[in-house]
Design a protein around this nucleic acid. Sequence first.
DNA 1: CTGTCAATATTGTTCAACGATTATTATTTC
DNA 2: GAAATAATAATCGTTGAACAATATTGACAG
Lengths: 222, 222
Amino acid sequence: MTDQDMTSALAPRLAEAIRNKLIAGELKPGHRLSEVKLSTDLQVSRNSLREAFRLLTKEGLLRHEPNRGVFVAIPSMASIIDIYRVRRVIECRAVAQAYPKHPAVGRMRAAVEEARAAGARSDWGTVGSANMVFHAAIVDLADSERLNAFYLQIAAELRLSFGLLDSPELLHEPYIELNASIVEKLDAGEMQEAAAALETYLLQSERTVLAAFSRIPDKGRA
Amino acid sequence: MTDQDMTSALAPRLAEAIRNKLIAGELKPGHRLSEVKLSTDLQVSRNSLREAFRLLTKEGLLRHEPNRGVFVAIPSMASIIDIYRVRRVIECRAVAQAYPKHPAVGRMRAAVEEARAAGARSDWGTVGSANMVFHAAIVDLADSERLNAFYLQIAAELRLSFGLLDSPELLHEPYIELNASIVEKLDAGEMQEAAAALETYLLQSERTVLAAFSRIPDKGRA
DNA sequence: CTGTCAATATTGTTCAACGATTATTATTTC
DNA sequence: GAAATAATAATCGTTGAACAATATTGACAG
């Protein structure tokens, strides 16, 4: 799995590799990414790596300080609040005006099933991934590739914050059945009710995440 | 105005310079941007220029074809439809849940005044810019920097399409007073009515733009 | 006119270099 | 011994050149 297909350009592939390390928690927030070290580690030139850095900086996953280098972005309460605002704007509207037989609904249902199965065996990592798929499918109800791309970006940023939190059960378990009820309401054609449920759902999730976030000891205060 | 301040990094400045040329119509859709030519023209190295290209490609203003180079993105009906979907999702929601005394409302009002003045002297370019400011202020009602940044990107993409269209009066004149009525409704605390008006407004604008778009002779069919 | 093949130009990527800025260490001074 | 300062090292920012890989052009044969 080291050398991928060479179909696409190098910089986007590098960006994806680093992005995966970021959301997997292999690179901790605040950590500085040395150009020479990473370029030798990944066996690419500094220039190519810098192109990837620019991409990830634009995505909000890295922070760039002039003449000092790039650092893994440090999630803050403000960023979490901002991200949840975006989610409410996009997801609620997507649900409210959804076409009930939209193909994405099938993916939502499948994600619920997977989350249930994973929850039964306490596999909270898989529950989280299924939850991601669920919400990406919600956004897809709006049938906009730009919204889809934007949401993926936002979701990656949010996962960076999740990496700092413990207690994954508390963070994911309650939403399995809430997701299921959203699908039910959509199936019943009750889009407004589904959107309202999603809104309270997201507000609750935000509160939970912020509470968990406030409990972590601030290890990286620049 | 050639050499700007060196406060920020080179690549973002390059990207902005190219972006301005794009929305000003100096670079036409479909046109290929040669790395060597542009780098010599702008007095920068190829590597720095490539970093800027990556940025603009991610913004959707340039299109990247492997081993062939970067081209100015060619707007399509699909992209216009997509962009208007995004606008309805974000702008309508922002208005619907706006705080009537939000500072952005002041900017909306000022934009309306400027558009009226410019419209009186048939300065449709300024009307268009004021309209841009107006809608950016609408998005700002949601108080999310991520939404603001995303909207700016989308708006730049839309301006690329506008560059292809003629008859700027038809495209902008009707919306001066429609904008004014949105502000009035906001002042009156009638957020739902304002959102509904904005929705029909955006649907009408989309139809107008698509109609104008369908009238242009397709000069760039790859 | 059409298909083949060499010649040319452009992109993709790497490497080496150097000035500028920042971080670190050593030295001096009180 | 501690603080201030100078010297040193490390890193970034940007450039330029180089070479392989791919695409475009043009000549040529049938």
